[in-house]
């Protein structure tokens, strides 16, 4: 029997992206630069997070014409972002045959209480999380891949580190618990018990776990892999730097050889200026943190 859109096929594509870098691109030309640099996939969007942050206003799904242009420009998988809870945007992205939908806090949320029912789709979804409970809620809604949220558009890796540690420490803790403790733990985590049981039993998420939100240098990429990320999303970090093609290659190199400091050092030489960074405390004071959207 031939089947499509099974959960194994959905997580399977994320398995193929492991050890790789998924790069934000806003034009077909950028997509080609990303592919040429060794990106394992691209994320098509209208503005990179740093620009969304600067411009303000409502950030929405990208123009379908732009997504199609990017699909035609490259042969690697193309992902695109839908607003949290915006089922119709996700339907449009599915009809465009994007390879993955990112239900993303980088865009302005459409629903303050509910995420998209991702089981209802054939296209797989990736969702962000700041901690284990959030990751497990997204899995309960049908996400086939989890990424840390970090703080997009800041070029500051501190939040990605915090979120990755929250998730991996949470998993280790869960794996230590006895079966009789899981029900109360699920309540504590505000996550479905079935998903909690699966993670407690396996000692890992049932889907790939990537890092996103704040990677700006090869060293950042290597750090996140050492902390347990299975691959990296890089948003503004590449195309907001002074030499995107070279920085993109260097971040790909550092993601593969993350445990080889000499190679990461060699990749880090002569990259020009990194994107300008932002302090998290200042953003928190202005209530401008994207990571608090859609918990």
């Amino acid at each position: 029997m031939t089947e499509r859109a099974t959960f194994r096929l959905k997580t399977g594509l994320a398995e193929m992206l492991k050890g790789g870098v998924i790069m934000d691109v806003v034009t077909p030309e950028e997509a080609k630069i990303a592919e040429e640099a060794g990106a394992c996939a691209v994320m098509a969007l209208e503005r990179v997070p740093a620009d969304i942050r600067r411009d303000g206003g409502v950030a929405r799904m990208s123009d379908p014409a732009m997504i199609k242009g990017i699909q035609e420009a490259v042969s690697i998988p193309v992902m695109a972002k839908a607003r949290i809870g915006h089922t119709a945007e996700a339907q449009i992205l599915q009809s465009l045959e994007v390879d993955y939908v990112d239900e993303s806090e980088v865009l302005t949320p459409a629903d303050e209480h509910n995420h998209i029912d991702k089981f209802a789709f054939e296209v797989p979804f990736v969702c962000g999380a700041t901690n284990l409970g959030e990751a497990l809620r997204r899995l309960g809604e049908g996400a086939a891949m989890i990424r840390s949220k970090g703080e997009a558009g800041t070029g500051n890796v501190v939040e990605a580190v915090r979120h990755m540690r929250e998730i991996t420490t949470g998993i280790k803790r869960l794996a230590q618990l006895g079966p009789e403790e899981l029900s109360s733990e699920a309540k504590e985590l505000q996550a479905p018990l079935e998903v909690v049981k699966v993670v407690a039993e396996a000692g890992r998420l049932p889907v790939p776990l990537f890092c996103a939100g704040g990677i700006a240098t090869p060293a950042d990429a290597a750090l996140m892999m050492q902390l347990g990320a299975e691959g990296n999303f890089v948003g503004s970090g590449i195309f907001k730097s002074s030499d995107p093609a070279r920085r993109a290659r260097a971040i790909v190199e550092a993601t593969t050889h993350f445990n080889d400091p000499e190679r990461v050092a060699a990749a880090s030489i002569g990259l020009g200026e990194a994107m300008p960074g932002l302090e998290i405390a200042g953003l928190a004071a202005e209530d401008a943190l994207l990571q608090n959207r859609g918990a």
Partner: peptide, 14 residues
């Protein structure tokens, strides 16, 4: 490459 299509055309078969 990608002869069977994009992700939506991915499939399992015996």
């Amino acid at each position: 490459r990608n002869a069977f299509g994009r992700q939506l055309q991915s499939f399992e078969a015996d």
